[in-house]
Amino acid sequence: MDLTVGPVQFFWSAERWSAFYDDLAQAPVDRLVLGELVCSKRLPFFQDRIPDAIATLTDAGKEVALTSLALVTLKRERKATGALAEMGIPIEVNDLTALAHLPEGMPFWVGPLVNVYNEGTISWLAGRGATRICLPPELPLDSVARLARTGADLGVAIEVWGHGRLPLAISGRCYHARMHGRTKDNCQFACEDDPDGLDVKTLDGQPFLAMNGVQTLSDTHACAAYQADALADAGVSALRLSPQSSGFDALCRLYRQLLDGHLSGDQLVEAIGRDETGARLSDGFLTGARGVDWSGKAMSG
């Protein structure tokens, strides 16, 4: 298996954004998806930096694609989605609106926010030009294995969510703005203060979710340390790592070592625990009763 870096889900400053991809040029990852996934209001702040990042990463031998926006409602969002097809690199479709703008037969990738739950959907997408599909994180290992086989038969690379806070929901409403008593149109970019999302806890202080503007994520970081072998055996071709504001470069190296057999699942999890005190991990969507469940030992901290 190889490694794909998904799009940054959070609102980072342009400087942080550029520095992040400069660092990743040297990281042992095979491909990256750039661009704005969550909120179209963020894009103008770093849009002009995208071409440089694409050049840096492709010069370093990485494959690069651009994500479409996850929820497209406004006219300017539709226009921006249409314009993606003209950038000359693959598009990762994260809302079918993007597909409406792609010329028939043009190859594309499919991101984890498109509902790909079964063989019929993969076949249809493959017929339309999909060459790579990152499955929705909600899918259990049984389904993943079946879909990886279908993908292999059709020449579509199948990717699985490997690490990072899980994208659980997208809304028309901005929760950061709502929390500050504002509306989405007058949000004043409240989400910029939370480069990994804002922790949402229950009334008894139990960590539960994370808010990120119009997006809701899991509190836990999904971690496929213990499923990597099974996923590889099933024919999954890549793990997706989702950007976080610190230690991401090191995380990429750890996962590369895992896939190369230089680290065991336990060793990877221990290393993550050393780097991120109190990290809460989950792998329940793949193998547990609930998404939040974790098959490993409880983490200290």
Partner: peptide, 21 residues
């Protein structure tokens, strides 16, 4: 529904049972 329908796995994250599946 507060979230975009068909694009929400909050329920399966907490319970293992979701609208989509």
């Amino acid at each position: 529904c507060v979230m975009a329908e068909g694009r929400c796995s909050l329920s399966s994250y907490a319970t293992g049972r979701s609208p989509n599946m």
